[in-house]
């Protein structure tokens, strides 16, 4: 063992502790910096027209992103309708039927991998699967891409939450002659309600801020959302297009859209964290 004076060791300790405090503060500082920037620049873009009108050409007064807001809502809603039921079913299977069977282990394994697959890959995949055969960009291919992103998250949280329900509840229901599907949907789901809602909300928060899967599927559009088989305006792709444009007023619109998205995503995240999860305890 090398011998080192206590003074030196204490100094090293204080130095590293100082660095640790600094790193933590740095993380918080970056978060604050981002949120502050989005808030200040975003609010400057807000106006009545911003929420009610179609986009205006660069240089023109007024104009808004009402169509993109509507489009994002439609896409998110549709993705939820597709992704959540399948995810719930997958989660039920893993927790209630599959457990440690080989098939369940494989599903779990690939579910985790799907969760970590880059969102842009999902976009390319849906492009080759739906956009190319059908010949056009569309709202439903965008929604399917988002649903593919939701699916693994919902399946995983569903399994975790159902696992938390004590087995005594299952046994009690089954002992009364209740079929398994009724036990699952009426007893276990009720017991795990808060957790399931949390999982679904978090997955919605995750996809509503996604851009990459929509770039090649829903694309974007300057018009109102009219039907599911057409390119659809949405906030995130609009941010991308406007931010990359050389026009100052478009860039300001992008900040407005950024603020909307951030407020939406962060408030859902905080809501689940502080309201739902606290309720559970």
């Amino acid at each position: 063992m090398r011998k080192r004076p206590a003074k030196f060791r204490k100094m090293t300790n204080s130095l590293v502790s100082g660095l640790a405090v600094f790193s933590s503060l740095l993380g918080l500082f970056i978060l604050g910096w981002i949120l502050y920037t989005v808030l200040v620049r975003g609010i400057a873009a807000f106006s009545w027209e911003f929420f009610t009108e179609l986009p205006a050409p660069p240089g023109m007064e007024g104009g808004g992103l009402a169509n993109a807001m509507a489009g994002t809502l439609v896409l998110t809603l549709l993705a939820t309708v597709i992704g959540v039921p399948i995810g719930l079913l997958g989660g039920i299977y893993l927790s209630e039927f599959g457990q440690h069977s080989k098939f369940a282990e494989w599903v779990r394994f690939f579910n985790n991998i799907l969760m970590g697959t880059p969102s842009i890959i999902i976009g390319v995949f849906i492009y080759t699967l739906l956009v190319v055969p059908l010949g056009h960009f569309s709202a439903y291919s965008g929604a399917v891409a988002l649903a593919v992103m939701m699916l693994p998250v919902v399946a995983r949280t569903t399994e975790d939450m159902l696992q938390l329900v004590p087995n005594a509840l299952r046994e009690a229901a089954l002992a009364m002659g209740t079929p398994r599907w009724k036990t699952t949907l009426n007893v276990i789901f009720r017991a795990a309600k808060t957790g399931l809602i949390t999982g679904v909300l978090l997955s919605i928060a995750r996809i509503s801020g996604e851009t990459a899967p929509l770039l090649f599927t829903a694309l974007n559009s300057p018009y109102w959302f009219s039907n599911l088989s057409e390119p659809t305006a949405n906030l995130t792709v609009t941010i991308f297009n406007y931010a990359m444009s050389p026009y100052a007023d478009w860039q300001q619109m992008a900040w407005g859209a950024s603020l909307l998205i951030s407020v939406g995503v962060l408030s859902v995240t905080l809501f689940t964290r502080f309201v739902l999860l606290r309720e559970k305890k």
Binding site: G27, L31, W33, G209, T211, T236, F240, W255, T269
Partner: peptide
């Protein structure tokens, strides 16, 4: 509190990082 703050960094959508990165 600090770990909540750090976790929120993960909740910020990546396009927001892009906006902040490019303009700030």
């Amino acid at each position: 509190w600090i770990s909540t703050g750090i976790e929120l960094l993960a909740a910020v959508p990546s396009i927001i990082y892009g906006m902040w990165g490019l303009f700030v």
